[in-house]
């Protein structure tokens, strides 16, 4: 029986790293006795004590700044953002203090900034956003967006062990909706490597996070009509796995890029440019984007459903692209 949820994978990953390495500690809002708004750090304060599970004031710049300061003394802080929508409050610390530290003055910043992002749970404009691209545009950061429980656990461990600032976007729609059996032994998933989540010959769909599951569901349906989708899960947005993207395009010659983030300035544009650079001659059709609309994330269910990409969108666009 599949037993471990996406959230539990993240929880286990942080827990195991804290057991393994005493220099790992957590800080954030309501993460101690309360266990965090989504209960990712539930039980941590009993095990690791208030020294290593630090409840902070509601002060995102202070959380990130203090995490960086602690990292300067050789620790590996894991800073929780209650919602990634609030990451703008710490934008300057992340993009100017942490991201540039190693380049400017040789100070590594082994800080993980993690928290829930994404829609589909009717959280409204301030509890549903996908702010990853603000950070993908910042050299010096790593941006990770897992789509499975296995990857969530393996990637949070890699993020904690990484010597660079890693922004770790946990998709809150997936937290308790997906489960799988995870290996009992210690494992990591490398940052910067995409994964072929389903092999197919007709066209490629490049995606990440919750949209991975939309793509896989569409692929099941399309397979019944003879269209074989290759589904590539990026897993990391910065640095992008250029080779994996080029490889799938060379294999299928047709590509859809699907993401829940809004359209303008989303990673689809970057991936399309990259395909242009790496595999232009291999294309047999236009690069297709399926994304959310260029609006704030609306609250009411009919509005949010309209806003988000759906399985039907993928099926429609795949049929259209197949005909080229």
């Amino acid at each position: 029986m599949a037993s471990t949820s996406y959230l539990e994978g993240i929880r286990q990953g942080i827990w195991e790293e804290m057991e393994r390495d005493p220099s790992v500690f957590c800080l954030g809002e309501d993460i101690g006795i309360y266990g965090g708004a989504f209960k990712v750090t539930d039980g941590f304060i009993e095990r690791f004590g208030p020294e290593r599970v630090v409840d902070t004031p509601i002060a995102e710049s202070a959380i990130v700044g203090a995490a960086f300061g602690a990292s300067l003394t050789g620790l590996r802080p894991v800073a929780e953002f209650q919602f990634m929508d609030f990451i703008g409050c710490a934008f300057n610390q992340i993009t100017n203090m942490l991201a540039k530290a190693h380049y400017r003055w040789g100070a590594p910043a082994p800080v993980v900034i993690r928290g829930p992002s994404g829609g589909g749970v009717h959280g409204g404009p301030f509890h549903s956003q996908n702010p990853e691209m603000y950070f993908v545009h910042t050299p010096g950061l790593k941006v990770v967006c897992p789509g499975t429980a296995y990857d969530a656990k393996g990637l949070i461990k890699s993020a904690i062990r990484d010597n660079n600032p890693v922004i770790f976007f946990e998709h809150k729609f997936l937290y308790r909706r997906i489960k799988e059996d995870l290996p009992a032994e210690d494992y990591t998933v490398p940052i910067g490597k995409a994964r072929v989540a389903r092999q197919g010959r007709d066209l490629s769909i490049i995606t990440y996070a919750a949209m991975l599951h939309v793509a896989l569901e569409a692929a099941e349906i399309l397979a019944k009509e003879g269209i074989e989708l290759e589904v590539v899960d990026l897993r990391t947005l910065l640095p992008l796995d250029r080779e994996a993207i080029a490889t799938t395009v060379r294999h299928t010659n047709k590509v859809i890029i699907l993401h829940e983030d809004t359209r303008t300035g989303g990673i689809a544009g970057e991936v399309a440019a990259l395909i242009n650079e790496e595999a232009f001659d291999d294309l047999d059709g236009p690069i297709v984007r399926i994304t959310s609309r260029d609006t704030p994330v609306p609250f009411s269910p009919p509005l949010e459903d309209y806003f988000l990409p759906k399985v039907a969108d993928v099926i429609r666009e795949a049929r259209r692209l197949k005909s080229y």
């Binding site: 700044g65 203090a66 995490a67 960086f68 300061g69 602690a70 003394t73 050789g74 610390q93």
Partner: peptide, 19 residues
């Protein structure tokens, strides 16, 4: 940008205290 070193130095003290 101004003031950003203040939480960083707080964090340095936090890190040392944890050690």
């Amino acid at each position: 940008t101004l003031g950003d070193l203040i939480p960083v130095m707080a964090g340095v003290a936090l890190g040392a205290r944890l050690q």
